[in-house]
Every structure is written in structure tokens, then in C-alpha cells.
Write a protein that binds this DNA or RNA. Structure first.
Lengths: 252, 252
DNA sequence: GTATCCCTTTGATATTTGTCAATGCAACCA
DNA sequence: TGGTTGCATTGACAAATATCAAAGGGATAC
């Protein structure tokens, strides 16, 4: 290898990784949602290939020029924001069918980091070309807007969690959210493997890792879940949901 | 007034309130940013008129069908999310030139409430027509995407604030953010009137109103600001900024 | 296979923020 | 003008979470 080629450079596109929305079983969860066969094949031609990432690899970093958004094909990601003064906030965890990178549109530069938490694959969607195609395909344009709006609504949910919930409520909401998303992808809603550490969960939930660990233990003691390291089984979904109603529960 | 007309019904468009982006001094802060004169006049024709709101009036409520987004022409708004279990989270405060209502795109229904905190005026931007026009005007399409992306990035900043900052850091960040936004609109960055109550600030910052009030008092004792009820004068901007570097400030 | 390292759990204590309560201030209305 | 009402401030105390510290468990690398 020549000296002017860094050893850790990773190809931006994994050669031979074919991508076709029309053949993808995630299409109903992902960007192609609602497209006709013909329009979907036009989208196929736009997708700039795929990319494989090993656990721990960055899909992009804050400061990288923005060129594409990404659809998660398989695997699991986290996004986080780092400030100069050393704060680190996990802003989300993304799984198959979800879109990454929309933070970069506003400034043409990514504002957060996206890291694979397990070996993963993504589709590259060049944004300039996506805009061109969505000028022509109204349903694609509208769905892109929906995807971005959904991200805004999701963020509001996280603000609600961080602003109004206590530690155990936050963790319950987090587990129920994961459960629901796994379920939507055909996996068990009751039993799954956490891809992230207690510290990453804590960062997302605005808690210290010890607090997260204690909340897990408490849920187990109360018979709500069974947890061993990263393996979680939800025993009592209604019980977890009940935790989300505050003590004075002014319902109705 | 006839019995079948509710007394509190407010016209959705204020008759006679003319709106033209091309004549608006907010256009560089708002949706028309970057448009040519010709394209701006096409946007003028799309804007569905304006609407005036008195303090306390809702621009829209969670559950309302989504039809338009709104540009704040004058005044001041808050948006908040309410859950069935009684939680209430203020998700943002909006001032002139800022866009409201993008939460509604994803489900065709608004997911939060928008309330005028002082007498205000907005422009109505019918979304279906905006999508049609942005298919034709690429720079409008792109700028709409930027505006939505900017909202996502802003939300990440709020998550950072809620997830990693302590009470006084949150309030300092809040004041500095207001200061910067007033400044960008030609108002004093150092002296302004808060349009929201301590409770609303607290909701936004994930704090109780008493904690907000104590933080204000502490800032005043330390000579950082001068505060009397809703009137705030920032005396020491660098001092406030210094509060945002955490105690161990691992810089560099 | 085994040693290492990172992650997790748990306990004791400190700090921060929330809760409850009382008072003060200011604007608004009659 | 005076009273009412809502908002803000302040204090004392309680509760939640963070911090510090130590030890155990699994996965990974050699």
C-alpha cells in the first residue's frame, strides 16, 4: 500500500453489494413506501449502492460533508452529538428500514456521528439525485417529507421523555419503544438483544449508566422483565406500560 | 349571532391581511430564502393569506387535520405536546421568520399545540401547493428540506440540553439562544422581554418553575444578568457562556 | 485456554432538583 | 381605586439521581 493511502480508509461503497428497493423486504418500512412498481425501479437506479460496516465503524462523522442519506438494510446504529466542551448525547438508535443522515441537509455538513453497533449494511441515497427524482415523482417527494416530519415528531417524543419522565419511566418507555420496533420488523416484541451498552442507553435517556443498571435490576426484581447483561425478555408488557402513567395519573 | 355558529370560532384567514414574501423583510430568515424575484412572486401567489392571533389563541391543536405550515410574521409562539397521562412538554418557542407546523406532515394530523404568547401574525402556506411548487422550483424544494433538517438539528440541541446539562447550564443556554435569535432579527441581544412564564421555560428545559426562578435569581446575584419578572438584561454574555463549559472542562 | 479488558452490578454517600408552603408583586377588572 | 387573580420569589425539607468505589461476569484476543 502506498504511503499516501491511509490504511484505515474504507471504501464508501462496498463493491458487489447490490441494492434494489423493489426486491427489498423492508420497502414498506423505508423510503420506497407507497411507490408504484415503475417509480420504485426509478428509485432503484438512483440508490448509489450499498455499504457494509463492521461493529464500531462510523458511517459518518460530525463535520463530514453531506452527500447522501442512508437507509439501514440490516444491523443497528446509534447517532450521537459531541460538543467542544466534551458533552456527548446519543440522539437515537436506528434499525432496519430507518433513515440516517437527515441532520446534514441543513448545513451540507453532518452534525452528528453515526456508528454501527453491530455488523450492518446500509443503502446510499445520494441526496441531490433524490431531490431531482422527487421533483418528478410526487409520491416520493411527499414520502420524503413524511420521513423527515416523522423524525421531528420522534424527537419531540424524546424531549417529552427527557423533560418529564423519571429514570424508571424513561427506561420503560425505551424498552417498549424497542419492543414495538422489533415487532414491526417481524422479531419478537418480548425478547431481544440490546446492541448498546448501559452507558449508551444512559446517554440517550439522560441518565448515568449506574442509574440505568439499577432500573434494570429493579424491573427484574418486580417481575417486569428478565435481564442478563444485554439479553432482555419483557415478561409483563402491561406492567411496563403502567409505569408510564404518573402516580397521580390524571386520566380522563 | 345564529345558534349554529359558535361564538369562539375564529376565521382561519384574517380578511384583508395581505401577505407577500417579496415585500417581507423577513424573507432572508424564512422560506423564500435564496429565491429569485420571479420564483418569489410565484411563492407569493401560493401563500394562502395571513392570520392574526391574540395572545393565548391556538394556531392549531394536536389532532387538527394538517393542511398548512405557518411562517411567523410577527409575535411569539410556543409549541407543546400533551400526552393522555397528563404530561406536558414545551417543545419550542418560535419567533418571526420561523416555521411552524412541520410536525403534522408525517401523519396528516398535528401532533402538538401551537399557541400565541403575544398578539401575533402568521402566513399560511398550504402544504399540498407548496409541494407542487417545489417540484418546479428546485431551490424552493431544497430550502424546504433545509428548514426541516434545521428543525431536526435544533431538536438534537434540545436533547443535548435536556440530557447532559444541569439547571443553570440549561437556563444559560436558553438565554443565549434567545439573545442570538433576537439579535438576528435586529433586536438587542442584551435586553428583551420574555414572552413565556417561568413554568413554560421550566417545561421546555425539563425543570420545575421554582428551579428556573432560583437560577434567574442566582444569575442576578452573580452579576450575570439583571432580571425583573419578564424583563431580562444580560450583563455578562461571556460569563453566561462560561457556564456552559462543564466544571472539568476537558477542552482540547 | 487463559488472561485481559470492558461492561455491569451493587453499595455508600453526596449533590441536585423537586415538593410543599408562604409571601410578594403586578397587572387587570369591576 | 381597590380587590382579585395569576405569576414569581424564597425557604425548609424530601426525593431522586449522580458520584465514588469495589467487585463480579463475559467476551475477546492472543
Amino acid at each position: 500500500m502506498h504511503a499516501n493511502v491511509k490504511q484505515n480508509v474504507v471504501p464508501l461503497i462496498t463493491p458487489g453489494l447490490k441494492v434494489a428497493c423493489s426486491q427489498c423486504n423492508l420497502r414498506e418500512l423505508c423510503l420506497p413506501f407507497g411507490l408504484s412498481d415503475e417509480d420504485m425501479s426509478r428509485l432503484d437506479h438512483l440508490i448509489g449502492g450499498g455499504r457494509k460496516l463492521k461493529r464500531g465503524q462510523h458511517l459518518y462523522r460530525a463535520g463530514d460533508p453531506f452527500e447522501s442519506i442512508f437507509a439501514v438494510r440490516s444491523g443497528f446504529f446509534k447517532t450521537d452529538v459531541l460538543t467542544e466542551d466534551g458533552r456527548d448525547q446519543v440522539t437515537g438508535f436506528q434499525m432496519a428500514g430507518e433513515i440516517l443522515g437527515m441532520d446534514g441537509i441543513s448545513t451540507e455538513v453532518h452534525t452528528c456521528n453515526a456508528v454501527a453497533l453491530e455488523d450492518s449494511e446500509v443503502c446510499l441515497i445520494p441526496f441531490v439525485e433524490l431531490e431531482m427524482l422527487s421533483s418528478e415523482i410526487h409520491s416520493l417527494q411527499h414520502h420524503l417529507h413524511k420521513v423527515m416530519s416523522r423524525e421531528i415528531v420522534r424527537d419531540h417524543g424524546v424531549m417529552m421523555l427527557l423533560g418529564t419522565m423519571r429514570a424508571e419511566e424513561r427506561l420503560a418507555a425505551f424498552l417498549l419503544n424497542l419492543s414495538q420496533r422489533f415487532s414491526a420488523r417481524g422479531y419478537s416484541p418480548a425478547e431481544f438483544h440490546l446492541r448498546m451498552t448501559r452507558e449508551e442507553i444512559g446517554s440517550y435517556l439522560g441518565l448515568k449508566l449506574e442509574t440505568v443498571s439499577r432500573a434494570f435490576s429493579r424491573f427484574q426484581d418486580e417481575g417486569l422483565i428478565s435481564v442478563q447483561q444485554k439479553h432482555v425478555r419483557i415478561v409483563d408488557i402491561p406492567g411496563l406500560k403502567a409505569l408510564l402513567a404518573p402516580p397521580d395519573g390524571r386520566i380522563g
